[in-house]
């Protein structure tokens, strides 16, 4: 099973076993611009994403 990352309405499917930081770079999301939630807990960018994980990404950058 892959890892699924959800940012707003977008869903990304990637292979498991990489760190969150590497995964974000792979899907072209700036690691500094999001926070990641796995099973209701914030996780750090060093966390290795496990098989079947569903990660909710929260955009943190606002403008104006």
């Amino acid at each position: 099973m892959p890892v699924i990352l959800i940012l707003r309405e977008k869903e990304y499917e990637v292979n498991h076993g990489m760190t969150l930081r590497d995964t974000l770079n792979k899907i072209d999301v700036q690691p500094e611009a999001v926070l990641a939630v796995h099973q209701d807990q914030l996780i750090t960018d060093e966390e290795i994403l496990i098989d079947g994980a569903v990660i909710k990404l929260i955009a943190v950058i606002s403008g104006g």
Binding site: A33, I58, G63
Partner: peptide, 28 residues
């Protein structure tokens, strides 16, 4: 900014997640 978002979330502060529509595409 990321640290402030983390603080709001961990402190369970309910904030507007959606942006002001005019901020989209802004220089900042």
């Amino acid at each position: 900014e990321r640290e402030m978002a983390a603080y709001a979330i961990l402190q369970k502060i309910e904030y507007v997640y959606e942006e002001c529509p005019y901020a989209i595409g802004s220089k900042s």
